[in-house]
Design a protein around this nucleic acid. Structure first.
Lengths: 246, 246
DNA sequence: CAAATATGATAGTAATACTATTATTAATAA
DNA sequence: TTATTAATAATAGTATTACTATCATATTTG
């Protein structure tokens, strides 16, 4: 069990009033993680949240403009937290391959780590990210929210992983797409293995599901990075076209 | 421009009354594709849809239990349609590698193909699948809906692709996860390239975005399939060493 | 002590997601 | 042809959601 003490910085455009500054604010964060995990994002309302806390809708609206903003706030929390964990865990590593292995481990692993912020249940938050995270940016207002920095934490995280990928293979043509794919593949296979098992090769009933996901991520990352690094094979028939980005 | 005439079979658990049997039903399908594409899934309501059609909420409820069911119906339509196109386009192919190439092309390509069902705008439907598709199964009722066959079409599609992958490399350990990853990577990169460009290496401003996605999919599929396999005389590169994880 | 800040209590509104009823029209079977 | 059924329209109504607004009260801080 690793425990560390870090101040998570969340983009102020994601709240009306910083929830970390007050007891009620912290209670809002803590309870929404519990409640969204329990009933799901759509059935979750500020009214139910207020009832759970013993407060009122109006009070919650003083912290977050609406449910969506609160939700994206939670996502950012998770992504920031994952970024920091990758940093901490790869701190003194010189070998990029080792760094990547560690980063992939961090992507999958949540159960055995607590942040200093004792009121957030990281395991539940991870479950929320896995099952509902995509809703954070799949809507008509993405572009505007993107301009306001709603997704900075996720971009930072992907970029961090992409940099490790590039360190391993500077000529790899798709570092960002691969970084992103690794995170999403982790989420998808965790979700599918449990809910739509025909869509995954992993065994959702196994207690070692996270280990299986980690193996899958390692397989994808290391095998793809090994390609494109040297002169193309003569018999490479897949019509791969360099996009000229590197 | 390819055009074909096929009856798309949609699981009856996805509607109260078959919309393809009546004019109003077809108008509901046609107009919801247009309207969801235009305003997005959350702002889309049966009331607005009815107004657009010149009908009433109550009439639409006779065809679909609710918005979610209608939405999943549309997703199934798209997946069925993609399945059929893969079948048609790989019909007389003996080489599995060629089949996969064709399938990956079909995954990306929508603009130049019309089904016989003239009232569905396939391009808009594809946009909806790309930007909102994940919402179809990311909620608390997945397991129940899965039992009712809400996701059969998607499973069928993934399975079809997974079978081609296994034909190419019978020892590949992750055919289902890879099949799924290819579809999702296509959707994600189409979406990211346009809306969150820092998350993709592809150029969303380019008119050739779909070509870029196709290259990416080919890269992923063929390079991953080359791993973990028994030595294949003409394809095996000695530099490609298994990472020993499986 | 005064002033600001934070929360609670309460009310109200427009929109959503339905359900129900009754009337009207169109299709079809006797 | 009429009688019956099916399909849709018209209308109304309800509970819940997603807010906004106001005022009272308690707590902190200057």
């Amino acid at each position: 069990m690793e425990t560390f003490f870090i101040n998570l910085k969340i983009n102020p455009s994601l709240y009306v009033k910083d929830p970390l500054q007050t007891d009620l604010g912290k209670k809002i964060i803590e309870t929404s993680v519990d409640l969204i995990d329990e009933i799901g994002l759509e059935p979750f309302t500020f009214k139910k949240l207020a009832a759970e806390i013993g407060s009122t809708e109006a009070s919650i609206y003083r912290y977050f403009e609406n449910k969506h903003q609160l939700f994206v706030y939670l996502l950012n929390w998770f992504w920031e937290w994952m970024s920091i964990r990758i940093d901490l865990n790869t701190l003194n590593m010189s070998d990029a391959g080792e760094k990547l292995k560690k980063a992939l481990h961090v992507i999958v692993d949540t159960a055995n780590v607590n942040s200093s912020i004792e009121f957030v249940n990281e395991e539940k938050l991870h479950k929320i990210v896995v099952s509902e995270g995509a809703k954070g940016y799949h809507h008509k207002l993405v572009d505007e929210e993107n301009k306001e920095g709603f997704f900075l934490a996720y971009k930072k995280l992907c970029n961090k992983i992409a940099e490790i990928l590039e360190e391993i293979n500077p000529d790899y043509p798709y570092p960002k797409s691969l970084a992103n794919m690794l995170i999403e593949t982790s989420n998808n296979n965790l979700y599918y293995a449990r809910h739509l098992p025909r869509l995954s090769d992993l065994d959702g009933d196994s207690s070692k599901l996270t280990d299986q996901v980690e193996s899958l991520l390692n397989h994808i990352a290391f095998n793809l990075l090994r390609t494109e690094s040297r002169p193309k094979a003569e018999n490479h028939k897949s019509s791969l076209v360099s996009n000229g980005k590197h």
